[in-house]
Design a protein around this nucleic acid. Structure first.
Lengths: 99, 99
DNA sequence: GAATCAATTCGACAGTTATCGGACTGTCGA
DNA sequence: TCGACAGTCCGATAACTGTCGAATTGATTC
């Protein structure tokens, strides 16, 4: 997957907040789609704040939010984290031309 | 290299600002140590702001600042970007247990 | 229809931060 | 020694953002 500068900036900003990152980790490590209520039980934040963070991760393209009736389920969007990771790694390798 | 939660958060926060990221890219892509004056010619910011960003990148552990007389030279610290990249990649692979 | 519950939206507020001008420090050349 | 110059430090300020309570929406159940 190819990311332009704007998308990269959005993603890095989304990853920068510790709670949001923790939420992303929970989503990634959960085997199945992650419910918002489940997230609320994990993180010491209010529902309003969780909703805000979910939206941030969603607009950054990091997660997919599937809404079913009353509930919302969060899943990692494949390829996005891998893309930014490989970009960062390529930055580093560019700095070591000899190796 | 192993990074704890705090260091990771610091690094991600340092990467989150677009100008700072651009600066880091310039440092990484430069074959030789990158001078502050060179950075000033590239970025549309004041010297004070540049100094602030340099300090942020330095305390995050992303760059090394070598001060020689009047000048300061910036180089990428090896392994840091690679570490955070591999961590992000591992997060993604954790979400795909089957593969 | 009324009650309940999950999630979102809406101000509002506090803390953070990117930015700058100006003052300062230290270095080098004349 | 005296400028000139690179970089840093110091408020100050404007913008951003993480957080919350309260109000709202939408769905489910009784």
């Amino acid at each position: 997957m190819r990311l332009n500068r704007t998308q990269r900036a959005l993603i890095l900003k989304a990853l920068a907040d510790p709670r949001r990152f923790e939420l992303l980790q929970s989503i990634a490590n959960a085997g199945c789609p992650f419910g918002c209520s489940q997230a609320l039980a994990t993180l010491p934040i209010s529902a309003a704040t969780l909703s805000h963070h979910v939206k941030e991760l969603e607009t950054a393209g990091l997660i997919e939010v599937r809404r079913e009736g009353k509930f919302a389920y969060l899943t990692l969007r494949p390829g996005v984290l891998a893309s930014v990771a490989s970009f960062l790694a390529s930055l580093e390798s560019a700095a070591r031309p000899g190796r």
